[in-house]
C-alpha cells in the first residue's frame, strides 16, 4: 500500500520548545473566569494607586458650602466634612495604602522565608535563636504591639509603615517555611545535590526554596491584605499621626468627625473606603489559585 511508506505524522512536528513563564501564567489565569476577575480587580487598584493621584491637584479643593453632599454627577461618592470629593480622596488615598501594604508584604515574606529556610536547613543554633524570636512575635499579640510601638516611633510614612509591619509579621511564615524545609531536606534530591557538589547557597535557595515558593507567594498576597487591615486599623484608632490622606484616615474621620455611626448623611463617606478594602481583598483571594498553579509544576496540566 502506498500509504505505508508515508512518514508518520509526528515526524513533522517541530522540536518542542518549553512554554515560557508568562504563557504558563496566562494559561493558568484563563482556566477559570474567577481568576481573571481577581486579576482585573488587582490591576484596577494598582493603576489607581500609580496614576490616579496625578489626576488631582496636590491639595484637594474644599467647599464649606457643600459638606456631606449625597452622591451626584459632580461628586459620584458625595463629599466629606470639608466638602472635598470622596472619590478624589479614595483615589489619592489608594497610593499610600497599596504602597505601604506592598512593602509590608515584601518585608514579611523576605524575612520570613529566608529565616525559615536557614533555620530549617541548617538546624542547630541558628534554628534555636530564630525560632525563639519567632515565638516571641507569635505570642505577643500583633496589633497591641503596633499600638505600643506607635507611641515611641512615628512610622506614619509608607516605608516606615511597611518596615514595621514586616518586622512584626514574619514569624508565622518563618515557622511554616521552616517546617516545610525540615521535611524537604530529608528528600533524596537534596542529598543528591550535596553529593553533586552544589554549594549550600545553591541547595537552600536553588533546590529547597522553589518547593516552598507556591506557599510563600500565597503568603505574600495574603500578607498584603493583612497589612491593609493593620494599617487601616492603626489610622482608624488614630494612634499614628496623619501625614497623608489614605483610606484609614478616611475611616477615622468618617467615624470621629462625621459621626457616621449616628447619621446617614456621611454613609457614602464611611462605606467607600470599606468597599475598596473588601473588593481588593476579594480580588487577591480570587487570584491566589492561579499563583499556586503557576508556581507548582504538579498542578499544571501538561
Amino acid at each position: 500500500m502506498a500509504t505505508a511508506n508515508l512518514p508518520t505524522s509526528h515526524e513533522h512536528i517541530k522540536p518542542w520548545t518549553p512554554p515560557t513563564f508568562w504563557s504558563i501564567a496566562w494559561k493558568a489565569l484563563r482556566r477559570k473566569p474567577s481568576r481573571m476577575l481577581g486579576l482585573g480587580i488587582l490591576v484596577f487598584y494598582v493603576l489607581m494607586a500609580v496614576f490616579g493621584p496625578m489626576l488631582y491637584p496636590a491639595n484637594l479643593p474644599t467647599n464649606p458650602a457643600n459638606i456631606y453632599a449625597s452622591p451626584s454627577w459632580a461628586h459620584p461618592l458625595g463629599t466629606d466634612f470639608e466638602g472635598t470629593d470622596v472619590l478624589a480622596l479614595i483615589v489619592t488615598g489608594s497610593r499610600y495604602v497599596l504602597y505601604s501594604a506592598g512593602l509590608a508584604a515584601f518585608f514579611t515574606v523576605s524575612i520570613g522565608a529566608i529565616l525559615g529556610l536557614v533555620s530549617g536547613y541548617f538546624r542547630g543554633w541558628p534554628e534555636a535563636i530564630i525560632m525563639r524570636i519567632a515565638d516571641f512575635f507569635l505570642t505577643v499579640p500583633g496589633f497591641p504591639l503596633l499600638v505600643v510601638l506607635s507611641t515611641v516611633w512615628n512610622f506614619g510614612n509608607p516605608v516606615s509603615m511597611g518596615l514595621v509591619l514586616g518586622l512584626t509579621g514574619w514569624a508565622a511564615l518563618a515557622r511554616a517555611v521552616r517546617s516545610q524545609t525540615l521535611s524537604l531536606r530529608e528528600r533524596s534530591f537534596v542529598e543528591a545535590a550535596r553529593g553533586l557538589g552544589l554549594s549550600r547557597r545553591q541547595i537552600v535557595f536553588g533546590e529547597v526554596f522553589p518547593n516552598t515558593a507556591p506557599y510563600v507567594a500565597m503568603h505574600f498576597l495574603l500578607a498584603i491584605t493583612g497589612s491593609i487591615y493593620l494599617e487601616v486599623g492603626l489610622f482608624f484608632l488614630g494612634v499614628v499621626p496623619f501625614s497623608t490622606n489614605n483610606w484609614g484616615v478616611m475611616l477615622n474621620l468618617a467615624f470621629s468627625q462625621a459621626g457616621a455611626m449616628y447619621s446617614t448623611r456621611a454613609l457614602p463617606y464611611l462605606l467607600s473606603p470599606l468597599f475598596c478594602i473588601m473588593s481588593l481583598t476579594f480580588g487577591i483571594v480570587l487570584f491566589l489559585g492561579a499563583v499556586d498553579e503557576v508556581l507548582n509544576p504538579r498542578l499544571r496540566s501538561v
Binding site: 533524596s188 534530591f189 543528591a192 533546590e207 522553589p210 518547593n211 515558593a213 509544576p297
Partner: peptide, 12 residues
C-alpha cells in the same frame, strides 16, 4: 537513590 520519586526536585 532507591526512590526515583524523591531523587529529583519536583520544582525543576
Amino acid at each position: 537513590h532507591q526512590d526515583p520519586y524523591t531523587a529529583l526536585n519536583p520544582s525543576h
